[in-house]
């Protein structure tokens, strides 16, 4: 009986301990510059959008193709550029600076796959690059497909498939 009582007190003490420790930790937590991060991401993300639009305009007027085809060309171009810059070793610094400004657009997706591929090339084509290429992007693809199927169904059944 006695031991049980003491163990309860001990657990109680320990819980209190954790709470007061958490207070100390919170007191020494630096404030992240969220507003500046958001503004930088907004401006850089917007710039990526502007570049994309310019590329579409360029492809439609130069190659005389439809806007839909030019959009695919634009995506391929942006993916290629971010892969190339990742391979050249400075795109990660840009991403660290611009954060979601470069992660949310297609550039972030390409960057995640390219960096994974580069990282695991020494482990070989199967156990290295093959197994790890989608290490970061795999979740995006999986839930992207699931969401696309889900919304496609809604569109088909409730909105008349338009």
């Amino acid at each position: 009986m006695k031991t049980r009582k003491s163990s309860i007190i001990l657990v109680g003490d320990f819980l209190m301990d954790k709470i007061s420790y958490k207070k100390i930790v919170d007191r020494h937590k630096p404030t992240e510059t969220r507003l500046i991060n958001a503004i930088v991401a907004f401006v850089v993300g917007g710039l990526v959008g502007v570049i994309g639009q310019l590329l579409i305009d360029f492809y439609t007027s130069w190659l005389h193709i439809t806007t839909q085809d030019a959009t695919s060309f634009m995506i391929v171009t942006l993916v290629f550029i971010s892969c190339l810059f990742t391979a050249l070793g400075f795109f990660d610094k840009w991403v660290t600076f611009a954060k979601c400004g470069l992660i949310i657009p297609i550039t972030g997706f390409a960057h995640s796959m390219m960096s994974s591929g580069m990282e695991y090339k020494h482990e070989g084509p199967i156990y290295g690059v093959g197994a790890n290429l989608f290490k970061l992007a795999g979740s995006v693809i999986l839930y992207g497909i699931v969401a696309a199927w889900f919304f496609g169904m809604i569109r088909y059944y409730f909105l008349g498939g338009v």
């Binding site: 937590k29 991060n37 795109f91 660290t96 470069l102 960057h111 960096s115 970061l136």
Partner: peptide, 17 residues
């Protein structure tokens, strides 16, 4: 970085801590 976090060339933002 490779073992505990992300691929080294991936520029994931990190907090100040």
């Amino acid at each position: 970085e490779k073992q505990f976090r992300n691929p080294t060339e991936y520029g994931a933002p990190k907090p100040k801590t």
